[in-house]
Simulated scan of single mutants.
Amino acid sequence: MSASDQEAAEQRVQDAVRRHARTRAFTEAEDVISAVLADLGVREARERVEAAETELGMELCVRLQPFQDRYDQAVAQGDADGLAGVCAGKHGRWGRICVLPDGHETSMEEPHWGHTSEGRPIAWVGSAPDDW
């Protein structure tokens, strides 16, 4: 076997070891996350947060529903300009998209607000990328 063939073989082994280590690390992380999320205390805390977010969402609904209506209309009409000024805050994985204007946290002093994928009004603080 030539030196270059031997180097190539060693590189393939190193690459395979790195892929295996990464896959194992992700699997272990997912197991830990699943165990934490399955904990009774964590589930109860999540339920309390969701209840508070729903309650606040309902309280703000009367005042903020026009923003949801404008958002829905812009989506239905494919109005890119109408959607361009919407807040980037979202929890897309959980079906939440803030329908308030960009910068509302400082100009209007409102939390993120919109509807869940089930159509329930909801308000929340903070955002997460869609790929979480």
Rank of each mutant, 00 (worst) to 15 (best):
G92Q: 01
S34N: 08
R48N: 00
H20W: 14
G85D: 08
H20R: 13
R63F: 02
W124Q: 02
Q14W: 12
G85W: 03
R93H: 15
I122R: 13
D130P: 11
S107F: 05
A84K: 01
G78T: 09
E44M: 02
P121H: 04
A80D: 15
D81K: 12
G89H: 03
D130V: 11
E55L: 13
A128F: 11
Q77T: 11
Q11W: 09
T116P: 00
Q68G: 06
G114Q: 00
R19H: 10
R63P: 00
I33V: 15
R19E: 15
A74N: 02
C61K: 09
W113V: 00
R19L: 09
R19S: 13
G92W: 00
P129G: 05
P101F: 08
A3F: 12
V32C: 03
S4L: 08
H91C: 05
P111I: 03
R12K: 08
Q14N: 15
K90S: 15
G95N: 00
V125P: 06
I122A: 15
V42W: 04
G85Y: 03
G57K: 07
G95P: 00
V62I: 05
T116E: 06
D39M: 07
D130N: 11
A80C: 05
M108P: 04
C87Y: 02
Q73F: 09
E44L: 09
A45G: 09
P121A: 02
E110G: 07
S127M: 07
R46H: 14
R120Y: 04
M58A: 13
D39E: 08
I97R: 11
G78H: 13
R24F: 03
E47P: 01
D81T: 11
R46K: 12
A76D: 03
G95S: 01
M58C: 14
I33W: 09
V125W: 05
A3Y: 09
I33Q: 11
A76K: 10
Q68N: 10
V42A: 04
A21T: 03
E50T: 11
G103R: 06
L83K: 01
E110W: 14
D130A: 10
Q6H: 08
Q11H: 12
A74C: 07
D69K: 02
D69V: 05
D5I: 02
V13T: 12
L83R: 01
A76W: 01
E59H: 13
E109G: 07
F67R: 04
D69A: 05
A3Q: 13
R24N: 06
V99M: 06
L40K: 12
V17E: 12
E110L: 11
A35S: 09
D102Y: 07
G114L: 01
E59G: 07
E53Y: 14
T54P: 01
W94A: 10
Q73T: 14
E44I: 06
C87P: 01
V75G: 01
T106A: 14
W132I: 07
P101M: 08
E109S: 13
H20K: 12
E47W: 05
V49Y: 02
E50V: 08
A35L: 12
H112W: 04
A128Y: 10
Q14M: 10
L40N: 14
E118L: 09
W124N: 06
R43F: 05
R24C: 05
M58P: 06
T54N: 12
A16S: 08
D5S: 10
V42F: 06
L56F: 04
